[in-house]
Design a protein around this nucleic acid. Structure first.
Lengths: 231, 231
DNA sequence: ACGTAAGACTTACAACGTAAGGTCAGGAGA
DNA sequence: TCTCCTGACCTTACGTTGTAAGTCTTACGT
């Protein structure tokens, strides 16, 4: 039995490691959402037992922290390939491109934005990302103080997503009227009027946290414009 | 026994109801955070058993949805007391005051912002809040289309909070350098430089999701200015 | 007075994170 | 070569979670 067990691992499993644990977690989240990441499922997907994971990570919190770091590293790799001027007025398009590139990575992992929000620990890779963004602003002539304000003003938008509390038409049947909204139409004159007029049936319409690309860029440009003016 | 049980309830407990369940949940969250809200604790705080709650709410999800609705109602009550002109250029300060009032309510329930984010269902009270905000913008001369963009651009900021991914100096010992940040200072020239200069030891410095009031207002004004210009 | 339905309770289960301790292969020192 | 240690892995078990299923009780319409 012991021999069988051992040989089974030796022949068919490349040995556990913190890195493999984190990558497996991302894989599980990609196909089942972040809630699908449990220590047992994680172990199973690696051909091991749940408790074995604890030799490589302290606890589940650390797994999630690590996952954030890996995704942020993926972002940094992507923005690292960008080669644009950043001096003077060029800062604006450099920052814009950096942020939209980060967003592209996050859209590959829909669950990631919610995870980024929920973590309080500072991920080294996230710090590196922000450092680069501050660098661009400094090149653009921002004072340290204004750059600081700018980071706060951008908030999560700095890394490519923004939180919507109410996404019109986000229901299961996208494009069709929200039942709750329809039920209280009488008490929501402005909202109903607005949506009636705006109901452009955009196929890429928003789902869940993920807001429309066009809306994201509108908000981003609003902020970048304002910052540029204060530069 | 049955008599004792009944009398115990009759004399000392005002009978369960959906409303009482939600209010108890808010109370528990206020003192122990949202994670402290479990069906058992909730029942206990009401002098009942966990399963009894299911006669008044379908499941825990619905409890959380209901809590969001109650908090949003509290916001609506607060903004309902505002009496400011909204026509023309006055829209800006009316919207600003509405949002800052909402924020004041959320600051009384620190856990609420994270909860608002995590819910996907549309709360009727949240819809009412947004309807009022759209109304202010329409009074200000916004087209429906621009108002729609504006709501997306504001995102969660429309209701009084903004998500920060990395809050400088948010560690346990506020005001003192982050250990992670200190450890990689060499690779974060811009960030370290910025923070060194900006480290105004603001006593109200940011903790967790809750960003500094001044920073919130800076970002809000940036957006309102931009929107006003496009009006 | 008597069913009946709603509201409360009891019991039970599967899934979760993880503490504690056992097993065993591979390497270090004799 | 033998021994013993170390550390990666597994087994078992515990407390907590949400909630399904069933039972008891009380209030009320008839």
């Amino acid at each position: 039995m012991s021999l069988a067990t051992r040989s089974k691992r030796t022949e068919s499993r490349p040995a556990l490691s913190r890195d493999r644990v984190l990558r497996a977690a991302i894989e599980i989240a990609d196909e089942g959402g972040i809630a699908a990441v449990t220590m047992r499922r994680l172990a199973e997907s690696l051909g091991a037992e749940a408790m074995s994971l604890y030799h490589h990570v302290a606890n589940k919190e650390q797994v999630l922290d690590g996952v954030v770091d890996v995704i942020a590293a993926e972002i940094n790799e992507a923005v690292g390939r960008l080669t644009q001027p950043t001096r003077g007025a060029a800062w604006r398009s450099a920052a814009r491109e950096r942020i939209l590139t980060a967003r592209r990575v996050l859209l590959r992992h829909r669950w990631a934005a919610a995870l980024f929000e929920s973590r309080s620990a500072t991920s080294p890779e996230v710090l590196l990302y922000f450092d680069g963004l501050v660098g661009i602003m400094r090149d653009g002539g921002f004072s340290n103080d204004l750059a600081h304000h700018a980071m706060h003003a951008l908030g999560s938008r700095a890394i490519g997503f923004s939180q919507e509390l109410f996404t019109p038409g986000a229901g299961p049947a996208a494009g069709e009227p929200d039942p709750v909204l329809a039920g209280m139409a009488g008490r929501l004159p402005h909202l109903v009027g607005m949506l009636a007029e705006v109901m452009h049936d955009d196929p890429d319409s928003t789902i869940g946290w993920c807001d429309d690309q066009a809306e994201f860029e509108f908000g981003l440009d609003l902020l970048l414009d304002g910052l540029d003016r204060r530069r």
